[in-house]
Structures are given as C-alpha cells and as structure tokens.
C-alpha cells in the first residue's frame, strides 16, 4: 500500500534561518501520526509545506501520492485542513458554514443537505443548526471545524494544534472523532504540544530546532529512553539540545 505522506530530506529555509532541516519520514494510510515539538521547532512549517501553503527549499515530498512541487492542486483536492486558529466563520450559522465548505470543496448540491444532517446528528448539535457559530462553546466549534475539514472525505487530514484551549473532557471527545476518522481509513496528521495527546497517536515524531529527533510508537519511545511518559521523553530530547 502506498504511503499517505512521504518526505525525503525536506528542507525549508527563510533566509539563513533553517526552519525545517532535512526531515525524512513516511506516514502510512489510516495512521494517526503525531507531530510534536515546542513552538518554533518547525512543525507548523513542515505541515504548511505538505498542505501546499509553502514551497519547500529543497528535498522531496509527496502527499496522497502527489508531488508537492508540481501537483499542489491535486493535493488540495485530497486533503482536509484545520488550523490552530479557528477556521469557521463566526457570523455564519452552523448550517451555512457546512454548506460553504461543502460548496468550495465541490460537493454536489444535492449531497450537501445530506452531509449537513450527518454532521449535525453525529455531533448532536441539531438544535443549534441555525444559530451563529459565534454563539457556540469553543469545544463544539472545534468538533464542528474538524467535521467540516472532513466534509469532502479527504484521504489525509492535517490538524494544526486542533485542541488548543479546550478542557480535557472535550479534548478526549475530540480524539474520539479522530479515531473514528482513522478507522474509516483517513490518515490523520496532527501537531500538538499536549504530551497526553501524543499517547493517543499510532506513531509520534519529535522535532527540535527544525530537526526530527525521534520517530517511533509512543511505547517504543518510552522504552528507548527508559521513562514512563511521553512528557519525559520530550523533556530529555528538548533539554538535550538546549543545554548543548
């Protein structure tokens, strides 16, 4: 089976600053791939290159089998994206937001109401379908944003710190949605700085100063560094470079 994401020596420089330094990894289809790192470690830059928002400086990368240099339009058709900042329109109702994203992702007109009902039922928010998004609690908004990012059934969904600022219970519920999507065969590529969330991923990569310092299952990483939590793994890796 073809890899959902493949990179080889992928690099992005801004002037003399190397934001992402020759990272190489593969993500299998249906995998939940965690991308960890402190702020400024280069994880957002890497994700932006994969989404076609940034052109890499060098190296190679394919997403859903398409080349990031030449086939970014094809990639856009096949990925979903949820940014760390909120991606729904506050002055539109829930239903209008769903209709809008369904529309720009080219869903057929007849399919949109069906899809809308599905999402509303799944999230249990039928009662607020015609309320403005601005009036919803943050947790609902984030779940809705995630469902909307999946509206066109993409092969891969990129989540850039999707759970920032919400309570642990809502985060747990959010991860249930992620698992469900992964079960359905969608590859989930997620950046986070919550170490408890790292435990939920199939595999985790840790980035420090633009370089990929580790890549394994959470269990594998904990064994390798002989600690009992992902937090500890991260501490060792991050501190290792900062005291150098």
């Amino acid at each position: 089976m073809e890899n959902a994401v493949h990179t080889h020596q992928l690099t992005k420089k801004f002037g003399s600053f190397i934001a992402t330094d020759a990272i190489t990894f593969d993500v299998a289809q249906g995998e939940i791939f965690g991308f960890l790192g402190a702020n400024g470690a280069g994880k957002t830059t890497a994700m932006r290159m994969l989404c076609g928002l940034l052109k890499p400086s060098s190296g190679e990368a394919t997403v859903a089998g398409f080349d990031v240099y030449r086939q970014s339009e094809k990639i856009k058709q096949n990925i979903g994206y949820m940014s760390q900042r909120f991606s729904l329109y506050e002055d539109l109702t829930v239903r209008e937001n769903i209709r809008f994203y369904g529309g720009i992702y080219g869903l057929r007109r007849a399919d949109i109401p069906v899809k809308t009902d599905q999402i509303l039922r799944k999230l249990g928010i039928e009662t607020v379908a015609d309320s403005l998004v601005a009036s919803l609690p943050l947790g609902w908004k984030q779940k809705l944003a995630f469902s909307v990012a999946l509206i066109h059934e993409p092969k891969i969904v990129f989540l850039d710190e999707p759970t920032g600022g919400v309570d642990p219970i809502t985060r747990r519920q959010f991860w249930d949605l992620i698992y469900e999507a992964a079960h359905g065969g969608t590859t989930v590529f997620v950046t986070t700085h919550y170490m408890d969330e790292a435990e939920y991923c199939n595999r985790v990569s840790i980035m420090v100063d633009g370089k990929m310092k580790a890549l394994d299952t959470p269990a594998g990483l904990k064994t390798a560094y002989n600690v009992d939590s992902m937090d500890a793994v991260f501490q060792i890796l991050a501190r290792g470079t900062s005291t150098k």
Partner: peptide, 11 residues
Amino acid sequence: TGTLEVLMVSP
C-alpha cells in the same frame, strides 16, 4: 481570523 489560510488550502 485565520480563515484565509483555510481558503488557501482549499481547492
């Protein structure tokens, strides 16, 4: 609001 980014990722 960051929605421009989402639009840029869309087709």
